[in-house]
Design a protein around this nucleic acid. Structure first.
Lengths: 163, 163
DNA sequence: TATTGTTATACTCTATAACTATA
DNA sequence: TATAGTTATAGAGTATAACAATA
């Protein structure tokens, strides 16, 4: 178990991190400029629009990296902006049901063209169709692998649950 | 110039963003836990260690996404921690020369094994050698493309910044 | 005038922990 | 007891703009 990456791995790792950082930077600027949305807020709205039915906070948390309180905070901002609504679920009084409003859909619609344009211009412009399929395959695999493997990486101290 | 992405592109885009977000999250936690470093701080130290000679702030800014003031701030933190030194350049009185200290090298050394382990476990575990080469090629190309093509939002990130 | 870098400031994001309430 | 979610708080990161100094 060597504690280094081989040159090809180093190259791939740093290129990946740098390319995605640049992409994230551009995407964040576009979302902010065109729709006054952070990327997380866009993710929440896009998820609700895509699901096409109300989701609980827990549903939303799945697929988002952030903490629960962070999600609550962002949802609060979106609610104040009139882009989503939150209500206590009738079926489980503990749960909160989140729905996208018409204004929320409109906001997504307003932001999407510019978003797509940025992604196409910055990322896909330099990739062939074959590259795109390959990239999709690899990243889907990697994502599933990471999701299946909770990052105990950060806590080498205890394999046991926190206090 | 349709204002949508085709399904394969959508899949690749979202998988990429999600996978890298998960990776970034894990990497940040590891750097914080093992070395009390943010990712940017690690990048700065790694760059200095790799260059093996002092660099100016501008040198450091190249290849980093952040703003100048952000870089100054992070450099200040690293200097306070005794991991780098900053001095006015003898050749150009405007420039600041940044050098890594022994403590800085030690910190990188302390953090690197865990860092590499996280990246290998999370990312490369699910990729073949061939995948790694392909990924490196694609991301290097994409990175160069993005660097050559600043976002449409007219980002004055370079040194030639109009008002 | 252009470039290098810092400061001052303000704002956003995120995490931790404590808390309420339902199940 | 465990789960869903919120609140309170506190810290870190980042950007913008104004600034000083040098080229």
């Amino acid at each position: 178990m060597a504690d280094t990456l081989d040159p090809a791995q180093m190259r791939a790792y740093f290129a990946l991190m740098e390319a995605v950082s640049l992409l994230q930077y551009a995407v964040r600027r576009q979302l902010q400029a065109d729709g006054d949305l952070s990327y997380v807020q866009f993710e929440i709205l896009a998820k609700l629009a895509d699901a096409d039915r109300p989701l609980t906070m827990t549903d939303l948390a799945d697929g988002v990296v952030y903490s629960r309180s962070g999600l609550t905070h962002q949802a609060g901002l979106l609610e104040n902006a009139g882009l989503i609504t939150r209500q206590t679920s009738p079926h489980d009084q503990r749960a909160t049901v989140v729905a996208i409003t018409e204004a929320g859909r409109a906001r997504v619609g307003a932001v999407l063209p510019g978003h797509v344009e940025v992604v196409r211009d910055l990322l896909f412009d330099s990739l062939s169709d074959r590259d795109v399929r390959t990239l999709g395959d690899m990243m889907s695999r990697a994502r599933d692998h990471m999701r299946a493997r909770p990052p105990r990486s950060a806590a080498p101290r205890s394999r046991h649950a926190p206090p």
